[in-house]
Computed example of a mutant assay.
Amino acid sequence: MEALYLTIPMAMCIAGFFLYVFVLAFKKGQFEDIESPKYRMFFEEEYPVQKNSETPAVSKETREDGPTSKS
């Protein structure tokens, strides 16, 4: 029974903290537009430039036409 005197107030404090964080995020507009982020990946125009990397960057020909085998 004594454990309940400690765990219930701790649970209430944790729940209050998460409620405060949720309200703060809601006021900042984090939940206003939930549709467009999932479509944003379709509108990327170019791949990021890779400098000083061991893997070669994708060439423009490979990106537009796809991989081709010229044997």
Rank of each mutant, 00 (worst) to 15 (best):
P48F: 00
M41Q: 13
P48K: 03
Y20S: 07
M1R: 09
S59T: 12
P56T: 08
T55D: 04
K60E: 10
T7E: 06
K28H: 07
A15S: 14
S53M: 15
S53G: 12
G29D: 05
K51I: 14
I34W: 11
E32C: 01
G29C: 07
Y47K: 09
E64P: 00
K27G: 10
V21F: 03
G29R: 01
E54Q: 14
L6C: 02
A25M: 11
F22D: 05
Q30I: 14
L19A: 13
F42H: 06
S59G: 05
C13T: 09
F22A: 09
F31D: 13
I8M: 06
F18I: 07
T7W: 04
T68P: 00
S53H: 15
F18A: 02
P48N: 03
G29W: 01
A57Q: 05
Q30S: 13
I14F: 12
G29Q: 01
E45T: 14
V49I: 15
E46K: 14
F22I: 08
P56C: 08
S36H: 04
A11L: 10
L4M: 13
D65Y: 07
T7D: 04
P9K: 03
Y5Q: 15
N52H: 15
F18R: 00
V49K: 13
A25N: 11
F26V: 09
P48V: 02
D33N: 15
T62C: 06
K38G: 06
E61N: 06
Q50C: 15
L24H: 14
P67L: 07
N52I: 07
F31L: 07
S69H: 03
P48T: 03
E32P: 00
Q50G: 05
Y47S: 12
S71W: 10
R63F: 05
P37T: 02
Q50H: 05
Y39L: 11
A3Y: 05
F43T: 11
E64N: 04
T68H: 05
E46I: 06
G66M: 02
L4N: 12
E32N: 10
S36R: 11
F26C: 07
E32A: 13
V23N: 08
E64C: 02
Y5R: 11
V23E: 12
I34Y: 09
S69T: 03
G16N: 02
T62A: 05
K60M: 10
F42K: 05
M1E: 05
P56M: 06
E44M: 15
E61I: 03
C13G: 06
Y47N: 11
P37K: 02
L19Y: 08
E45G: 09
Y39V: 10
A57G: 08
R63W: 09
T55G: 02
I14L: 11
